[in-house]
């Protein structure tokens, strides 16, 4: 392969397949046009350096933006990132402290316990922070790539022309239709708390017993840890969906039909996942069941019946909640802005 072939290859390998051959042919003939019939290697090098960095040339051909998140969403991106980082770090801190308090028994040196706790907090914060950074960035890059959220909102970068009349829409937006930041923050905190509970379930959702040192100790986890944690990919997916939805709400700022349908899908996902996890027969820790038998003096069949009823009613509650939430979203999306403004 000579220099020209190599150069053309370097450019075209960065291009989409569809246009690759055509550009290769054209570039080849253009380069040869620049040169005389019997060019020395020196001359070829000189001409190629005129064309410049192959990567840059390829970029000029594709014309794709060089940024992941453009100026229109960067502000939103930073605030969401800061906010969610702060929240999850708080949850990590709180769960770790509870964790330490409940595993505190007289034998351990308080200093080493403190060290252990701070070590855990730093480690978990790092893992959770990296996950969060990754997901939030992915979601925003996706929003950016899909050329912004096309909506008739007056958000910058939404593509539609802004006119002062849009201000009227903002003003006339009924309060019910608006999504306040505090609501979004509330939902995110709730998500973070649930996630914290899930991943530390064996220590936080358990039977607590008073120990010798005057503290409480979690002795018997209520759930079977292996079964519960086997659902982690599903849970991560749910958390990612929740964060993505929060970002979407944050950016558009009010209920739309589109948002209402996404909300409906998300509620469906939540109910389905909840149902699948809760209805697993081995979900409860056998040790917990026998402990309860001892405490209540009931037979295991009676106890299992009670648990079944609990599971069933929790699923029904989840379905009811999901239906109410979805319905509220649709209701809010359908509130007619213009009519309320003129009325």
């Amino acid at each position: 392969m000579n220099l020209i072939d190599l150069y053309v290859y370097e450019v075209t390998r960065l291009l989409p397949l569809k246009i690759r051959d055509d550009i290769a042919l054209e570039l080849h003939s253009s380069i040869q046009d620049m040169l005389s019939e019997d060019s020395t290697e020196e001359e070829i090098k000189k001409q190629l350096s005129k064309l410049g960095d192959p990567a840059k040339l390829a970029h000029n051909y594709t014309g794709r933006p060089k940024f992941l998140i453009g100026p229109a969403y960067y502000g939103h991106y930073l605030s969401i990132l800061k906010l969610s980082l702060m929240m999850t770090l708080t949850v990590v801190l709180v769960t770790q402290i509870i964790f330490s308090l409940t595993s505190f028994s007289g034998g351990i040196n308080p200093v080493s316990l403190l060290l252990q706790t701070s070590f855990n907090v730093v480690g978990q914060s790092f893992v959770v922070g990296a996950q969060l950074f990754f997901w939030v960035t992915i979601v925003f890059a996706f929003i950016e790539k899909s050329a912004g959220i096309r909506d008739h909102s007056s958000q910058p970068g939404s593509g539609s022309r802004w006119s002062p009349d849009d201000l009227k829409d903002v003003y006339s937006l009924p309060n019910k239709k608006r999504i306040t930041k505090s609501k979004i923050i509330g939902k995110l905190i709730w998500t973070a708390v649930l996630a914290g509970l899930y991943f530390n379930a064996s220590h936080l959702i358990a039977v607590f017993e008073r120990n010798g040192a005057g503290g409480f100790e979690s002795t018997i986890p209520i759930f079977n840890e292996d079964v519960l944690l086997s659902f982690w990919p599903l849970i991560i997916l749910l958390i990612a969906t929740e964060v993505a939805l929060a970002i979407y709400k944050w950016v558009i700022g009010h209920w739309t039909r589109h948002l209402a349908s996404i909300n409906l899908i998300r509620n469906g996902m939540f109910i389905a996942s909840f149902g699948v996890i809760v209805s697993r027969p081995a979900l409860f820790n056998p040790a917990f069941i026998s402990y309860m038998q001892d405490q209540l003096g009931q037979s295991s069949i009676e106890l299992l019946n009670v648990l079944h009823w609990l599971v069933l009613s929790s699923i029904l509650t989840a379905i009811l909640y999901g239906m109410i939430d979805s319905y509220a979203g649709i209701k809010k999306a359908q509130l007619n802005v213009i009519r309320l403004f003129t009325a």
Binding site: E26, S29, S30, D33, M34, L51, N60, Y61
Partner: peptide, 23 residues
């Protein structure tokens, strides 16, 4: 074609990067 355009533009004093022109 591409290179003839470069030459024409250069003759009239307009310098254009070839890496800009072809794209």
């Amino acid at each position: 074609y591409g290179y003839s355009l470069v030459q024409r533009l250069e003759k009239s004093g307009i310098s254009i990067d070839q890496s800009t022109l072809y794209p």
